[in-house]
Amino acid sequence: MSTRSLFAPKVDIPRGAALALGAGSVGVLLGFWCLLTYGGFTPPDFLAAPDKVLAAGVKRIGDLSLFRHIGSSLTVILSGFLLASIPAVPLGILMGSFRAVQAAIEPITGFMRYIPVSALIPLLILWIGIGIEQKIMVIFLGTFFQQLILISDVSARVSKDLIDCAYTLGASRRQVVQRILFPACMPGVMDTLRVTMGWAWTYLVVAELVAADSGLGYMILNAMRGLFTDVILLGVFTIGVLGLITDFLFKLLRQRLLSWSADL
């Protein structure tokens, strides 16, 4: 038996094989889609054919409406994400390394992480209305508490020896936090931001559920009323592609800013 086989666990495979496998699985899925639609197994208002989705995309790119939807969705997502990340990063780092901060915040985060964001929408409407603030707030609530927990975990895993070492080099407590704890957390923070950015995209439709007049989530919900499955699928694909792009940007950012980090 060879341990250097395509089917041995934790063994690298040739790049060509990896690409072929990836293309293969996507191909099978596309083929199945074509079979269902062009083969006449499903009616168009149940599942639109690939060319219909493409046509819907071309039309909306032509009249620029797709970009308008993307623009307003990006505004909501990025605002909510930044609003969450800016306090969550420092707070999470402190929470993971200071028992006092942890004791104060943990009961709240522990509780909030299990609350589905959609359950809070009625209250959000009551408190802050149905404008863009409400949509941003949905993204904020969906990411903030998860970020806190993940980042506090990153901070808790920073080696105690690194901190002790800084003390023996003459650092004060404050200097240890600023010059050791924060930089040591950066790779983990970056990974957390990347993961939670992905989650933020998944909250988009929930965010645009109420009283939206633009955005990809709105586009999908609106298309549902007329059973325009081509437009629904267009929205779904656009979100997927935008998600991939932001993920790639985060990866690039990490390679650029944190090239010193061993685990890329």
Partner: peptide, 11 residues
């Protein structure tokens, strides 16, 4: 102090 574990600041 020099520690047994690697304590260079990686950044």
């Amino acid at each position: 102090m020099v520690f047994q574990s690697y304590t260079l600041f990686p950044w």
